[in-house]
């Protein structure tokens, strides 16, 4: 669990801040981004173990990030967060090989368990 790198992308400032506080307490190394473009730029520089991204964002959205990450760095896990808990979005996200999917409001305990599970499986 030590020093594993997690990237959080959400245009809501609070989401990044809160997840950073919780996950850093658990020993993760967390970086937060408010949009897709700077996040992808950062991914080019360094590898992350988990990318947690909001689905609906201005400019580059969560789906685009998912496709890009799975294409370039398939071993990086992607968790999708979205306000739309509809089936359509879930199916689309799964088709893009998303590792897990959380509707808002996010249960942080479940999210933490999910991260743990994803990082423990090879």
């Amino acid at each position: 669990m030590n020093g594993q790198r997690i990237m959080v992308i959400d245009d809501e400032n609070i989401v990044g801040k809160m997840l950073k506080a919780v996950l850093e307490q658990d020993g993760y190394n967390v970086e937060t981004f408010l949009g897709g473009a700077p996040a992808l730029a950062r991914l080019q520089e360094e590898r992350f173990d988990v990318v947690i991204t909001d689905l609906k964002m201005k400019g580059i959205d969560g789906m685009e990030i998912l496709l890009k990450v799975k294409k370039e760095w398939p071993e990086t896990k992607v968790i999708m967060i979205t306000a739309f808990a509809g089936l359509d979005a879930a199916v689309e996200a799964l088709r893009g090989k998303v590792d897990d999917f959380f509707p808002k409001p996010v249960k942080i305990k479940d999210l933490k368990a999910c991260i743990e599970r994803l990082l423990s499986t090879p």
Binding site: I14, V15, M18, A83, P105, I108
Partner: peptide
Amino acid sequence: LNNISMIAQT
């Protein structure tokens, strides 16, 4: 709402 929920959980 998600923000409030996350703040409270955090």
